[in-house]
Simulated scan of single mutants.
Amino acid sequence: MAVVEEFRHLRDARGTRGPRRRRTDAERKEERAAWSFLFPWFVGMVLITLGPMIASLVLSFTDYNLLREPSWVGVENYERMLGDARLHKSLGVTFTYVLVGVPLQLATALFLAMVLNRGLKGLAFYRSVYYLPSLLGGSVAIAVLWKQLFGVNGLINQVLGFFGVTGPGWISNPETALGTLVLLHVWTFGSSMVIFLAGLRQIPDMYYEASAIDGAGRWRQFRSITIPLLTPVIFFNLVLQIINAFQSFTQAFVVSGGTGGPVDSTLFYTLYLYQRGFTDYQMGYASAMAWLLLLIIGAFTAINFLVSKYWVHYDD
């Protein structure tokens, strides 16, 4: 009892958490080193990300043409978006591009990942080759090449002509122009494929062996084993690719010559934002459009997270 009383006395005198241990010189040195390495990141965060975001938010409430001081107009830019027919058209084009291109790209990536997961010789080579489109797909050079391939006298029509088929001008036809950009997006499946392949490698073989003993075929194994265990990877790729698709710009800019034509059929939202900001010098309106895009991407991401609990299966 005397020991207990002494302990209570010491606890009351020093506090329930006990005395604070003094840091050694080595610990202080490590802490200073950590902060020194983190400092450039904090500077970049403030100057390159947070600062421009705050500036664009302020500019979205102004009339600013890059040549004179911005003047405050309140929510006029946001009200103006409600009646902007070309903005509504660009939203329709972008939504079509995202809702069609992303599922097709993920399906293609998953299919090729399953093919490569079957233990092909030279897997590292094929994995690198299939990953290249993701590195090059967003470049100006590939967009120029795509424009040549689907031109009136491009390679696609030359191949069709060999079989006696006269192909249209895929890029110049409003009905097919957006389809060529969706196809280009599907072609950039490499990054998703590599992630799918890594997820497939984590599925234990014992599940497939046990199901094969019970008489399950490949399709049954795919539906009941592969897809459920791969849903976290599918969810990750889905969120990532939706965000990337909404931000697509280079392909539409190069293929349409910066106009979004023909007849605004390739007028991506980002391209229209660029036109307003850097062609028409309506930087305040473009800033408001940028924040609308942020809200749209945030809404899609939030919806994906909300519904993920109904179809994404984790270990628990």
Rank of each mutant, 00 (worst) to 15 (best):
M1P: 01
F7I: 15
R8N: 03
R11E: 08
D12K: 14
G15S: 08
R17K: 07
P19R: 15
R20K: 06
R20T: 08
R23W: 04
K29D: 00
E30T: 07
E30C: 02
A33G: 01
A34P: 00
A34T: 08
A34G: 05
W35Y: 11
F37T: 06
L38I: 12
V43M: 13
G44M: 12
G44I: 03
M45Y: 09
V46E: 02
L47W: 05
I48N: 06
M53L: 10
M53S: 08
S56R: 04
S60R: 07
T62N: 12
D63I: 00
L66W: 15
L67C: 11
E69W: 02
P70E: 14
V73A: 01
V73K: 06
V73W: 01
N77V: 08
R86F: 05
L87P: 00
L87T: 04
L87Q: 07
K89R: 15
V93T: 07
T94P: 00
L99K: 04
V100E: 02
V102Q: 10
V102A: 12
V102S: 08
V102G: 04
P103F: 03
Q105M: 11
Q105E: 14
L106A: 09
L106K: 12
A107K: 11
A107M: 09
T108L: 15
A109E: 07
L110N: 11
L116T: 07
N117E: 10
N117H: 10
R118T: 09
L120E: 09
K121Q: 07
G122I: 13
Y126W: 15
S128H: 08
Y130E: 13
Y131P: 00
S134Y: 09
S139E: 02
V140R: 06
V140W: 03
A143H: 01
L145I: 15
L145E: 02
K147E: 10
V152Y: 09
V152S: 09
N153K: 11
L160A: 06
G161L: 10
F163G: 01
T166E: 10
P168N: 10
G169H: 10
G169T: 12
G169A: 13
W170R: 05
S172V: 05
A177I: 04
L178Q: 07
T180R: 02
H185N: 14
S191Q: 06
L197W: 07
L197C: 07
L197N: 10
L200E: 15
P204M: 06
M206T: 14
Y208S: 13
Y208I: 13
Q221W: 00
L229G: 10
T231R: 03
F235H: 14
I243L: 09
N244W: 03
F246L: 01
Q247N: 05
Q247D: 01
Q251K: 13
F253G: 04
V255I: 05
V255W: 01
G258W: 02
G258V: 06
T266I: 03
T266Y: 09
T270Q: 09
L273E: 07
R276W: 05
D280G: 08
S287F: 08
A288S: 08
A288P: 08
W291R: 05
W291G: 06
W291T: 03
L294V: 05
L294R: 01
L294H: 01
L294M: 07
F300G: 04
F300S: 11
F305W: 11
F305R: 13
S308A: 13
K309M: 10
